[in-house]
């Protein structure tokens, strides 16, 4: 009896529609790969931005010391 009840609740849970097909066919990994790529792109952008800022910082500090040298 309790077994029946259990299977009934399991059945009720299974009724709730999830993206099970997407998962079982393995296509979910395509979605995950795309998300990881986008994330990687954003992080790459941050690193490139930092590189540019470092260059700018160096130029600015060079300019300051250069100006002092001229005086």
């Amino acid at each position: 009896m309790s077994n029946l009840l259990l299977s009934f609740t399991r059945f009720a849970q299974d009724q709730i529609e999830m993206a099970d097909v997407l998962r079982s066919s393995g296509k979910i990994y395509v979605v995950v790969a795309i998300l990881v790529l986008v994330l990687g792109g954003v992080i790459l952008y941050l690193f490139r931005l930092e590189k540019k800022i470092s260059k700018l910082e160096k130029e600015v500090s060079d300019e300051t010391t250069g100006a002092e040298y001229n005086e």
């Binding site: 709730i16 999830m18 979605v31 998300l35």
Partner: peptide, 17 residues
């Protein structure tokens, strides 16, 4: 991203996936 997409989540009505 990995765990959020791949781990199990509770099956709730309305919210679904």
């Amino acid at each position: 991203v990995l765990a959020g997409m791949l781990f199990d989540v509770p099956r709730l009505p309305i919210l679904n996936e």
